[in-house]
């Protein structure tokens, strides 16, 4: 089959033999800067806002619930199964569908509602990024199908950047089939380089930092 044929060609071209070990692997390059939490929060907010995302900072979980309640007033929303959203009382807000564990139902609801509410697993302050790890608590579609995405993130999940993320998670595949980094609203510039937001993913992204 082509597998053996291709691997054979590769080995012959490189002068290697089957199963030969590799030498001189370049060392991993991860740099961890020390950045105070307040500075991380400030940078996170300015990065998200520079991408036309919105940010808010609330002192408590109760305040987070109130902020979300006001943000979704008059609209429909779906919440992920994240325990944190439950603890904040967001999953139980009127107008919020939550607790969905079946894919057909999830797809149907996400395609219909105005807002998807998640609690990101991490945030990366130096790029303004939300890190979404698929699990029973967080699906893929809640942050993808609705036209707006609202993420409620406790401040201790804010990391400095990619290097810290990959220090904490040297192999994300050990725990999930899907890790997605979200940096701002969906966008395109494919027609005359003119920026248009909300192509296939959410055109609005709101990050609510708690604490």
């Amino acid at each position: 089959m082509s597998r053996d044929n291709i691997l054979h060609k590769v080995r012959t071209a490189l002068g290697r033999s089957a199963g030969q070990a590799v030498a001189d692997v370049p060392p991993v390059r991860l740099r961890l800067p020390e950045v105070a939490m307040e500075d991380r929060i400030a940078l996170m907010r300015s990065r998200v806002e520079a991408l036309a995302g919105k940010t808010a900072r609330v002192p408590t979980m109760d305040a987070a619930r109130e902020f979300v309640a006001a943000a979704i007033a008059g609209k429909t929303a779906v919440a992920s199964n994240a325990p944190y959203l439950e603890e904040c009382g967001i999953a139980g807000l009127p107008g919020v569908r939550s607790g969905i564990r079946e894919v057909a139902e999830l797809t149907e609801v996400c395609a219909r509602v105005d807002i998807g509410i998640t609690s990101a697993d991490y945030a990366l302050s130096d790029t303004g990024t939300l890190v979404m790890i698929a699990s029973p608590a967080e699906s893929r579609l809640v942050s993808l199908l609705p036209p707006a995405h609202l993420a409620v993130v406790p401040r201790e999940r804010i990391l400095t950047g990619l290097d810290e993320l990959f220090t904490l998670l040297p192999d994300p595949a050990a725990q999930t089939s899907s890790m997605v980094l979200i940096t701002g609203p969906s966008r395109t510039a494919d027609i005359e380089q003119i920026l248009v937001r909300g192509v296939h993913g959410p055109g609005q992204v709101t990050v609510v930092i708690v604490g």
Binding site: T129, S139, R140, L162, A173, T176, S177, V180
Partner: peptide, 24 residues
Amino acid sequence: ATGQLLSVYTSFLAGPRRTGEVDG
């Protein structure tokens, strides 16, 4: 590529949906 710090979406995908995961 585009002068962005990161592209909007970076997906790291390892295999099909796992037990307990809702979609994928």
